[in-house]
Structure formats: structure tokens, C-alpha cells
């Protein structure tokens, strides 16, 4: 039975949505903000941070489901977005991230916002990445080049370029930099060259060094040339024709 719409109850309020609507979107329609670290409306659901878990009652039992991944495909669901259980789980998830990124500002701010303090007993690791995967997913799904990915698995899992080496398919667009919630991908420009990299010192991993294009009119650097090439190819024109936003 493939009805086009379904009605459900969230925190006591009723709402009707189109079939296959994500639960987190249904919550949003009711102005209920579900916290999340890995969800991005422009990307396919990933469901790894587990913050967005809500309690779902389908009649027989109550279970926790990640609302960013759960598609609404039947009637009669009852959802609770806040409870002792959910709050306790989120507290622990933050504590686990605090242990992993024990000096990372964005994580510390997030913890402070939720009123969670670190647990001393846990092993600390000075990491800056929470492995939300938004950078990898954006590069693959939106930019379409897939220049970065994961390396290894489990506690050794990291986001890297292949062989931690420069990857020519990267167009230095900076999408990964903009999308990262912990600002752990660096984008710098010096002497007309944009560098996308991670880490510093010995561990430094450069993904791409791209020459910047100069504006035909004012001569300032404004766009990495690989990005210009992508657009020029799609439009069938010469990339040097582009001018910077101020001159347009």
C-alpha cells in the first residue's frame, strides 16, 4: 500500500508529510530543532554522529532511530525528541568527542553549549576531526571529483587524500573547507597559489596547490585555475575571460 502521505505525532503534535520524508525534516517543519553534527541538507543522509536519535514508537515497541536517516513510510508513528534516555546518550556522545578532540575549539564550544563536561578517566587524543564525513561526501556528491576519502578503519580511520599525497583531481574549490564543522581543513593563499591541506608540521598533508587566476580587468587573484577550467569547459569558453566579482 503506497500512500502518498503519512500522518505522525512528534512530541504530541500531529503532522502530515509526503512519503519518504526524513524524520528530521518532519521535526523541522514543526520547528523542532534536532541537534546533529554530520547531517547536511545538501548531502545524502549519513547517520554516523548519532546525535539526532529520537524515540520512535511504531505500536509494538519503542526504539531509537537516527532521524536524519529514517524515512517516513507508514502511518501512526509516535516520536519523542527529548527524554532522559536521549539526553543521557547525547551527554556521553559529547564526552566521547571531548576525549577524542580534547583541545579543539568547536568541539569544546559544542560541549559547553550542551552543558557537558569532559570525563577525566577517558583516553585523550588531540584530534581536530570528528569524522562527520561532510568533506568527503561534499567532494564526491556536490563537486563530483572525490579527491579525498577515508584511510583505514576503526580507531585508525582518517580523512586523507590517496597516499596522503597531492591529488590532481582536486580543483581547490574549498567546498570541504567551508563545510567542515571543526575547521580542520586549511585553505591558504600565498603569491597566487591556493593550498588545501590538513595538519601541520611533520604530519602535514597537502591535497592540492593550485595557481590562482588573475582578473582580466584588475589583475587581482580571485579564482583557482582548476575551478575556472571546469566552468570554462562546461560553458565552452576560454577561462581567461573570467573577471572577479568586483569588476563584473
Amino acid at each position: 500500500m503506497n500512500a502518498k502521505e503519512h500522518t505522525l505525532t512528534i512530541d504530541g503534535r500531529s503532522i502530515t508529510v509526503k512519503r519518504d520524508t526524513l524524520l528530521i525534516e518532519a521535526c523541522k517543519k514543526l520547528c523542532i530543532e534536532v541537534p546533529t553534527l554530520c547531517h547536511n541538507e545538501n548531502l545524502k543522509p549519513y547517520g554516523v554522529c548519532r546525535f539526532c536519535q529520537v524515540e520512535l514508537n511504531e505500536g509494538k515497541r519503542t526504539r531509537l532511530v537516527p532521524s536524519c536517516v529514517y524515512e517516513i513510510r507508514k502511518d501512526g508513528l509516535t516520536v519523542t525528541t527529548d527524554s532522559e534516555r536521549i539526553r543521557n546518550n547525547r551527554k556521553w556522545l559529547i564526552q566521547l568527542l571531548l576525549a577524542r578532540c580534547d583541545r579543539q575549539k568547536d568541539v569544546l564550544d559544542f560541549a559547553a553549549k550542551h552543558g557537558v563536561a569532559p570525563v577525566e578517566r577517558l583516553t585523550k587524543k588531540n584530534d581536530d576531526c570528528i569524522l562527520c564525513g561532510q568533506c568527503v561526501r561534499a567532494c564526491s556528491e556536490i563537486v563530483g571529483v572525490g579527491a579525498i576519502g577515508y584511510e583505514r578503519r576503526g580507531e585508525m580511520r582518517e580523512v586523507t587524500s590517496p597516499y596522503r599525497d597531492k591529488n590532481p583531481v582536486c580543483i581547490a574549490c574549498g567546498t570541504c573547507v567551508y563545510v567542515c564543522p571543526t575547521h580542520c581543513i586549511a585553505m591558504t593563499e600565498e603569491k597566487g597559489v591556493r593550498t588545501i591541506s590538513r595538519y601541520a608540521g611533520e604530519k602535514k598533508m597537502v591535497v592540492r596547490e593550485a595557481k590562482m587566476l588573475t582578473c582580466g580587468k584588475c589583475g587581482n587573484y580571485f579564482l583557482p585555475s582548476p575551478v575556472a577550467e571546469v566552468f570554462a569547459k562546461k560553458m565552452g569558453i576560454d577561462p581567461t575571460v573570467f573577471t572577479c566579482p568586483s569588476c563584473r
Partner: peptide, 12 residues
């Protein structure tokens, strides 16, 4: 396949 995916498989 993007090299990043192949590399992921090779190290996974």
C-alpha cells in the same frame, strides 16, 4: 572509480 575510493578499499 575515484582513486580515493580505491585507496579506501586498499587500506580498509
Amino acid at each position: 572509480t575515484p582513486l580515493a575510493v580505491a585507496y579506501n578499499v586498499a587500506t580498509f
